[in-house]
Amino acid sequence: MKTLHPLGQTLIVAVLAFAGAVVHSQDGVSKTSIVLGQTLAMSGPGSSLAQSFHQGAKLYFDTVNAAGGVNGRKIELVTLDDQGNPANTLVNTKKLLDQGVLSLFGFYGSPQVTAAYPLIKDGDVLLFAPMAAADEFRGALYANVYSLRPGYSEEAAAITRHAAALGARKLAILHANDGESLAALESAQRTMTSMGANLLTTAAFTGSKVGGSVDKALAPGPESVLVIGDSQSAALVVRELRAKGFRGPIYGFSNTGESLLAELLGKSGAGVVVARVVPKSDGTKVALVRELQADAAAAKLGKPNVYMVEGYIAARVYTEALRRVSKEPTRAKLRKAIEALDDVSIGGFRVHFVEDRVGSRLVELGLIDSQGRVRE
């Protein structure tokens, strides 16, 4: 997939926007613009996922701005590159807060959110729609985080029910060692065992040599395997599992990237089941996805993936909240507008924040078929 801008151009745009935004009020609102702050991996680990999320969000904000913005104000998404490093996320978040933004938006990675949160914990700035699924963000300790995706425990529950229906209760987990994967692993161990899965072993993998880890996972005779990692690393592990003769169901969490994994695996992905927390990226049933596909085609961005869908949804929901605020938005009014979204249809995607800081509980399982396509 093409990116919205080459990386250099994207960062230049971000820097210019950042410099220009200094003139805005402390709450990131002027007579002509509303400024949101975002830091995520535009380069480095996780960049293939984070860039797609950013791309989808910016695509929708650009569409809104081309139509005149919200109540005459353009939405400025100031994006800084943290290279997937939580320490950089902390530094970038401080920069964004110092300049004055209405809110933070669309961070990527559970360790990154954890690193940045102390800066907003006791204030009035909220973080909207981080692409991070650690369960704790949905609890009372992260009261300024408003998520659009459920936590890993809910993905783990859906996978456990599916495996049980197939009679596959003996489970092995293969996982990467990055912070996001470890957050997913903790949820999987806790949730799946509590639901009756027999977790035989866990095995970590790093780099391109995964054979030893796969051998360890297969040694006790699992009936299903959960692979936790990004699409590139997960594809290596899936191929190795099949090469070593494992024919049972293989599962992945949403951070594996259903559509990305399918493209990498092709026919060798047959029988892999991956959780997703947004509608299918190449589907036609949901109006929002059809509109994204049309917008992406008009912008010559290529075929959307699940992370682009997630960013596009996040931008649409945020814009819907802005439209419900009075003509003079503030941080307090924005929070109130988000919390008033009561089973709202956003192009067929249901969002509910009333008495809940998690706007969607959608978890769907997609099956990769023998043609490398994702089926419901």
Rank of each mutant, 00 (worst) to 15 (best):
L4H: 01
P6Y: 00
L7Y: 05
L11K: 12
L11V: 07
L11S: 03
A17P: 02
A21K: 08
V22Y: 09
V23L: 13
S25M: 00
S25C: 00
D27I: 10
K31H: 12
S33W: 01
A41Q: 01
A50W: 02
S52I: 08
H54S: 13
A57R: 08
F61K: 00
N65I: 14
A67S: 14
K74N: 14
L77K: 13
N88W: 04
L90N: 07
D98I: 01
V101L: 07
F105C: 13
G106S: 13
G109V: 06
L119V: 09
G123P: 12
L126Q: 14
L127V: 11
P130L: 09
N144M: 05
V145L: 03
V145I: 08
Y146Q: 10
E154M: 12
I159H: 00
A164I: 04
A164D: 00
A168N: 07
R169E: 07
L171P: 00
H175P: 05
G179V: 01
S181R: 01
L199V: 03
S208I: 13
K209S: 14
V214E: 10
P222D: 04
L226F: 12
G229Y: 05
G229E: 02
D230R: 05
D230P: 06
A235F: 03
A235L: 10
A235W: 01
L236H: 14
R242H: 12
E258I: 07
E258K: 07
S259C: 10
A262T: 11
L264K: 15
L265E: 04
G271Y: 09
R276M: 15
A296H: 04
A296Q: 09
A298H: 09
L301W: 04
K303R: 14
K303D: 07
V306R: 09
Y307H: 14
V317W: 06
V317F: 10
L322Y: 04
V325D: 07
V325W: 03
T330N: 08
A332P: 03
L334E: 10
I338Y: 13
E339M: 06
L341V: 10
L341I: 11
D356Q: 12
R357E: 08
G359Y: 04
S360P: 05
E364N: 11
L365H: 11
L365T: 07
I368N: 04
S370P: 01
V374P: 10
